[in-house]
Design a protein around this nucleic acid. Structure first.
Lengths: 173, 173
DNA sequence: TTGATTGCAAAGCATTTGCATGCTA
DNA sequence: TAGCATGCAAATGCTTTGCAATCAA
C-alpha cells in the first residue's frame, strides 16, 4: 500500500493468518499459487491457473491448484464466479469492491459493474419476502459494442467466433 | 383459457407448431413428457421429470426426457434455470412473466419475483457500457423467513438440514 | 419407404476424492 | 515425529452423444 509496486504484502498476510488460524501449513506451492493468482487480473479457472503455475514450476499438480483456490476462497482472498460455460472461475476478492458482471455472449468479454441503486432494490425485494439477503448474483448477458458493430457489418453472415456462453432461454447459468 | 380446468391446449398447440415448422415428428413420448411437465408447477430437473414420467410409462428413457426438455426450450415452452447445485432445472416459460429468483440457501425454497425498477436499471447499466442486453440472470440468495426463525431458535446449534445450495463467496452459481 | 426418434450404453468434462509419499512445524 | 500437504490416478455427477432398432409421416 505504501509503494507503487504491488508486492501484495497485505494479501499474503491475510493468507498467513488464515493458515495459522486453521492449523494449516505454509508450503512453497501455496505461496507460488497465491503469488501468481494475485499477479493475474483476469478471471481464472483452476485449469488456467494451473498452466500459469506450471510455467514457473512444472512439479505443481492440478489438485494442489484446485485445493489452494478453495483455500484462498475460504481466506477471503478469492471469489468463485461462474459465467455459464460450465467452468468455475476465480477473481480477486480481498479489498475489492462488490460488483456484478456483464458478459458478452459473442466474444466472452466480461465487464464488472456496480450499481448502488440495484443493490438497494435487491435489499428491498428481499425484505418484502421476509428474506435475509446474504449474497446475490446478477449477470447481464448481451452483445458488447465491438461485437454489435461486427455483427452489423457482417449483417447476418455466420461469424467464425465461437461464443463462450451459449444462451437461449437460460437463467442462472 | 376458456375453462377453469387446465388442459394446456394453447401450449400443446405451440408445441405442435414448433414440431411442424422444424420438420420433426409427433410421438407418444413427447406428448406424455409435455403433459407431465405442464402439470407440474415446480422447477424440475431432467432427472426429476424422468421419474414422474417413469411412473406413468416406465418404457420412456432418460435420454428422451432430456432431449424433449431441450425441445420444449427451443419451442419457448420451457426455460432452463440453475440454482447452484450443479443441476439444470426447467420451469414453465410460455405465457409466463419474466421473473428472477430468490433462493433460500438453507432449505432450497425458491421464490419468484419481478421488479420493474431493477429491470429498468439493468437496461440503463447495459446502455452505459454500450452493451445490447439480451438476457440477464439475477439471483438473490439468503435465508427465508422460516429458516431464519428456525436458526434463531436453535441459536447456533448445527441444523440437520442439508443445504441445497452451498454458498460462500460464490457468484453466478 | 425415408428419415426422425428412441433408449441403451458409453463418452465427455469439470470437479472431487483416496491414498501412498513427501514435507512443515 | 506427527500429521498436514501433495500429486497421481481414479471416482463422481451431470450432461451429451453414437448407434442400432423402432416408428411416424
Amino acid at each position: 500500500m505504501t509503494s507503487v509496486k504491488k508486492d501484495f504484502e497485505t494479501e499474503k498476510q491475510v493468507f498467513s493468518e488464515h493458515i495459522q488460524k486453521a492449523g494449516l501449513r505454509h508450503t512453497a506451492q501455496r505461496d507460488l499459487i497465491l503469488e501468481i493468482f494475485l499477479r493475474t487480473e483476469e478471471h481464472l479457472s483452476s485449469e488456467d491457473l494451473y498452466w500459469l503455475v506450471h510455467k514457473e514450476d512444472s512439479s505443481v499438480g492440478h489438485t494442489t491448484v484446485y485445493r489452494t483456490l478453495k483455500l484462498l476462497t475460504d481466506a477471503g482472498l478469492a471469489r468463485e464466479v461462474r459465467f455459464g460455460d460450465g467452468k468455475t472461475y476465480y477473481e480477486h476478492h480481498y479489498n475489492h469492491e462488490h460488483h456484478d458482471h456483464m458478459i458478452c455472449t459473442e466474444c466472452g468479454k466480461v465487464v464488472e459493474f456496480f450499481s448502488p441503486e440495484i443493490e438497494a432494490l435487491q435489499e428491498k425485494v428481499a425484505a418484502e419476502y421476509g428474506f435475509k439477503l446474504t449474497h446475490h448474483s446478477m449477470r447481464i448477458l448481451g452483445l458488447c459494442e465491438d461485437c454489435l458493430t461486427r455483427e452489423k457489418e457482417l449483417n447476418g453472415a455466420a461469424s467464425g467466433a465461437q461464443p463462450r456462453v451459449r444462451v437461449k432461454s437460460v437463467v442462472g447459468i
